[in-house]
Amino acid sequence: MKKSLVLSLSLFTVLGLAACGTENSGSNENGSASGSSGQENWTPQQSLEIVAPSGAGGGWDTTARMAAEGFESEGIIDKGIGVVNKEGGGGAIGWSYIAEKAGNPHHMFVSSPPLLLVPLNGQSQYGFEDFTPIANMISDYGAFAVRDDAKWDNLNELFDDMKDNPEDITVIGESSPGSMDHIQFVKIAKAAGVDPQSIKYVSAQDGSTMTNLLNGNADVYSSGVTETIEQVRAEEIRVLGVTAEERLEGDVVSEFPTAKEQGIDETFVNWRGFFGPPDMTEAQISYYEEKFKALSESEHWADTREKFAWNEMYMDSGEYTQFLKEEKESMQQLLNELNISGG
């Protein structure tokens, strides 16, 4: 009886280790092959993997899947592309997975502002500096909505009221304090002179945000632009301001005023782009830049953007890195003022 256990186990490990060995040597070969194939031209040696650091169905997952689909159906990349979900830690699990793939540029992940916010909140040991920004693809913006019968007609009235009676105004959003929905509101409100710490923010992560705006438990809803459209059409809510630089294009959204045109000189971009593991070579970066640019400029992708109400925002690796540096600084400042950091 004992014998069969020992036998089973040893068989299992031997087979397993043997398998491990072959896998490792395999990937090493790939690595060296790609290294020696020259600095100027690099092409993938195996199928590619895009990690969505979240579960199925979210924004990251959709972007990753649509990009993979675009690359394949437009014939931009002829290798197979698999999308893998690595959920957990608000993205941290997926990021550390890619960080371990240093030197194997067949893996990428898709990300957005949480890649800056989560590490700043002390919840991930990896930040964008630990990866290779490849290209940004799309952007999205925040919207601040109130009930249709609310007393405020524009952002300035809301913010003025907030300065006087901060405890009477509840802001609700999907994400936890110190994350996206909270920060985008704080960023604009602060530019209008509201004390960030006085803002009463409630997080509702179970899909009840809109309900709570409509039934009066919350007064302001901080969310993405798309989430508000239908209720605006039904005249249940009004959007007081969006965080974009200029007015958005589209049926209902073009009527949303920006914070900027109301004299509040601040924006918030929900960018979304792709990152590779650390230590990618110039040749590898430029290979991907070219492919992502081709995708971004294709009819197919324009169609996808329209369907999901995304905006075009292509940045190559250099621009992207610079952009991320600046974004990170401004987030850091906001979080410091909110007294949430390093938790």
């Binding site: 069969s4 256990l5 089973s8 068989l11 299992f12 087979l15 398998a19 491990c20 896998e23």
Partner: peptide, 18 residues
């Protein structure tokens, strides 16, 4: 490390035998 198919095969086979 080894993949789903191989590992699961080994597991079911060895565990049932054991």
């Amino acid at each position: 490390r080894v993949g789903f198919i191989v590992t699961s095969f080994l597991f079911i086979w060895l565990c049932s035998w054991f």
